[in-house]
Design a protein around this nucleic acid. Structure first.
Lengths: 336, 336
DNA sequence: CTGAAAGCGCTTACAG
DNA sequence: CTGAAAGCGCTTACAG
């Protein structure tokens, strides 16, 4: 645990002043090539490692991005977080990640902690309800912050919002099922009062209405367990239903296993479209039709947008919705 | 983006010296209660936020934990990372996470970056092959570091290793299948030359040998896709096989969907035991028997062990294996 | 119990 | 192109 060498040691070793070393470290064009070489050699010999805390103190950016996720265990968010993190890393930024587990108190705590650590930016997929005081502290600290996938704070002029165009996804899915001849179509999963449920359901509701079909909603936790439960319930008590648009693939996968248990053949006896198109959906049997949001790509883009903001000062638009796409597979088309 | 207040501002506001403010910030017992109150009030009024970079510079610990994961998208590792992170957060530590995606170069890069950021400790689930130079730099920097789930560096005296007792899991699974009357049992999934494959297979091999049964291995990527492929292959060309111990639940779930496709009834025509017991396994149909490693608990424990190390100086043992447990479900027992 | 001073390792004008 | 000096916001002995 001997003390790490500092730029002063490097300067001495290279026979230059410490300012020069600092300039080399910043890839300044002001330094002569031979000097740069000398410094590089000295750094190598001494095993010098740059101390960002010290640099940050003097004004430079910390190069730390705060990524706050409401549910990191959900593959949908994992994919987003991992992609964003890797994009940041490829540009030399480190990512401080925190999982809030939908707990606003934890969210407040981690935000405060990250502010203390001097993060250069925040990317937040927030909890539904929130303590705004932490958000206010972010604003006061003047830290560039994007809300993604969920919107907590309505001031999108301060905290730009980006997400997928869920409404259009619901439309695509519902139209697809109607095209296949279904008319009794349910919407399954998603807690009733949540904005994201409303968004994902809105396309469904709209298409059902415009086709003069009666909407049917089964609201509940967006989990496999709930999907399975609803499948069994439908099999028992709602034999008239022919198809479902699900709140998420997790719900849809749950329905798949529920129907398998009940002996219902999905794709023939009952048609299902999921939402998110997580990796698993293309691998289960029967293959799950799903509204693809391409969260990996979204994570990458969100990171790029944020980098453009903090590096080039290019502020993102207040609100941005990325297109979604319907992937048709066996669970709606049938087994061919 | 006005400048944040510093302890000097707080001191002025509270009418004390900045040393006193610093002591209050550190919860020192040396400060009179009334003074503490005054300072707290001033902090509140000014909206002061502690600057850890500055503190770190002068010697205090950064309170930043570096968590490096080989595959963050795999639910097994996600669960581990999320649990560890939340444990750290509950003790006031922030976690810098990086996903290396099994790429040793990325691993080297993020390690270096985290050293620059002055992390107080590393918890690493490493890539299989690795560039040791980064590890050497960790050692040189004297940063407490644990290897978890996979061992890259053999110097466990420097970098303690913790994992599950995989060998015993393989034994439990194989004995269970034999007890059910199977004798032609395959081991499916896992790349042949990897230490973790060897570990997970060793229990299987041992039990097969001691029962004078011939082992059969299908080695390949530990993915759903590979599991599915092997299931179809077994159905085509290896009808004599009665059961499989899988390298991971992902592989087992892939087999489940492959057999479903082939019309083979798992639990009756063919018995399967997975490995990891991820959440999904208790929800699919048929329910998947699996060797439970309880990665969430493991993540929590790993974090606790690390905290004991950096807070109380209690160095963990060189090597530690946590018990695993066999969860018997329909995929091996049958559908009752 | 509190204050004045030095210093942590960098960057940033400012001279030269 | 390079050096000397000041300062970023804290903590840490050291006095008092």
């Amino acid at each position: 645990m001997k003390k790490r060498p500092t730029i002063l040691d490097v300067a001495r070793q290279a026979g230059v002043s410490k300012s020069t070393v600092s300039l080399v470290l910043q890839n300044s064009t002001l330094v002569k090539e031979t000097t740069r070489k000398d410094v590089a050699t000295a750094i190598e010999e001494l095993g010098y490692v740059y101390n960002r805390s010290a640099a940050g103190l003097r004004g430079a950016t910390s190069g730390l991005i705060g990524l706050i996720i409401n549910d990191l265990r959900n593959p949908f968010f994992t994919e987003f977080a991992a992609s964003a993190q890797m994009m940041f890393a490829s540009k030399g930024y480190s990512t401080v990640i925190a999982n809030t587990d939908e707990d606003p108190e934890i969210q407040t705590q981690v935000i405060d902690s990250m502010i203390e650590h001097g993060v250069s930016a925040f990317v937040i997929s927030p909890t539904y309800t929130g303590d705004k005081s932490a958000i206010d502290r972010i604003e006061r600290a003047g830290i560039p912050t994007m809300q993604v996938l969920r919107q907590l704070d309505e001031r999108t002029d301060l905290f730009p919002f980006a997400s997928h165009n869920y409404a259009s996804g619901g439309e695509l899915a519902t139209n697809h099922l109607i095209d296949l001849g279904c008319s009794n179509i349910a919407f399954v999963g998603g807690l009733e009062d949540r904005p994201i449920t409303l968004e994902r359901m809105s396309g469904y509701s709209k298409v059902m209405a415009s086709n003069a079909l009666a909407p049917r909603a089964f609201h509940g936790r967006p989990s496999r367990a709930y999907g399975r439960e609803v499948a069994l319930r439908i099999h028992e008590d709602h034999r008239d239903l022919q198809a479902a648009v699900c709140f998420s693939d997790l719900v849809a996968l749950g329905m798949l296993s529920g129907f398998a248990e009940a002996g219902v053949q999905v794709g023939k006896d009952f048609r299902i479209v999921g939402f998110d198109d997580i990796e698993e959906s293309s691998l289960v049997y029967p293959r799950l039709s799903s509204v693809r949001c391409d969260t990996g790509l979204f994570g990458k883009r969100a990171a790029e947008v944020m980098l453009a903001w903090i590096v080039d000062g290019k502020r993102p638009p207040d609100r941005k919705r990325y297109d979604v796409e319907l992937i048709k597979r066996q669970s709606s088309l049938g087994l061919d």
